[in-house]
């Protein structure tokens, strides 16, 4: 067989990062060997920005068994993101005996340029993320039986979350996102226990926190959502 053709020189400059990013991370020696190939590769492979991108996968760690599982990076923007791990055994599982068993990872991420928010779900059984779906925002809000409409904010983009949280809730999952004007948007995701299931997020509630927070002093501070504790409905 004829020797392979030399790569075009531009390849080394432009696209080689894309190639090296896709070296499997389970073989650390491979990165070292690749760094010996030539100077441009070495420069790239020792660049902290590259290494940050390269190691952008997730580890799901079970503190009970010490088991570590690598989850590949999801193909959704993660300028801001939040994730939750769930048992994949479905509604019937009492979680006493499911350690090391199949699990799901839900990820919600926002693109900081377009302010679009996507959600995806990873199944340890299929080893893959499902196709991301876009979370739609609804400018009408329905709180405690009353329907309110409000105008779309002109300057602040409501997709600009001041914090998000993912909360396992019953057989499903709730995603909470705080947007400007202190609006807490809640979406729900119902799990079917079927590994081929499709992520379908339904917007079910928008809460105006300004009406709930105790004093005007608190309301004047910048608000940020850092977590949500599930409680009785």
């Amino acid at each position: 067989m004829a020797p392979p053709p030399p790569p075009p020189p531009e390849l080394m400059e432009d696209a080689v990062g894309e190639i090296l990013l896709r070296l499997p991370p389970d073989d650390p020696a491979l990165l070292l060997r690749a760094s010996l190939v030539c100077k441009p590769w070495r420069r790239l492979l020792t660049d902290p920005a590259f290494l940050r991108r390269y190691h952008a996968d997730y580890i799901v760690w079970d503190p009970i068994t010490g088991d570590e599982q690598h989850v590949p990076d999801a193909d959704i923007p993660q300028s801001y993101f939040n994730a939750a791990v769930m048992c994949a055994a479905g509604a019937g599982c009492d979680h006493r005996d499911c350690h090391g068993g199949p699990f799901l990872v839900a990820l919600v991420g926002t693109d900081e340029h377009e302010w679009v928010t996507y959600a995806s779900l990873y199944s340890s059984e299929s080893g893959e993320w499902c196709e991301p779906s876009e979370l739609e925002f609804d400018y009408d809000l329905y709180v405690d039986g009353a329907l309110f409409g409000f105008e779309r904010p002109e300057r602040d983009n409501p997709r600009d979350f001041d914090g998000t949280a993912l909360i396992p809730a019953g057989d499903g999952l709730t995603f909470a996102g705080l947007t400007p004007y202190s609006r807490l948007h809640l979406w729900s995701l119902q799990m079917t226990g079927d590994p081929d299931q499709v992520v379908e997020w339904t917007s079910y509630r928008v809460i105006e926190l300004d009406t709930l927070l105790p004093s005007a002093d608190i309301r004047s501070y910048h608000q940020s959502l850092i977590g949500v504790a599930p409680g009785p409905d």
Partner: peptide
């Protein structure tokens, strides 16, 4: 395509990588 080239590099020594990719 990047994945394809990455697969060609896997498990190879630096010299083998150079030869596989057609480096001089």
């Amino acid at each position: 395509v990047a994945k394809k080239v990455a697969d060609m590099i896997k498990g190879k020594s630096p010299m083998e990588i150079r030869r596989t990719l057609g480096f001089p």
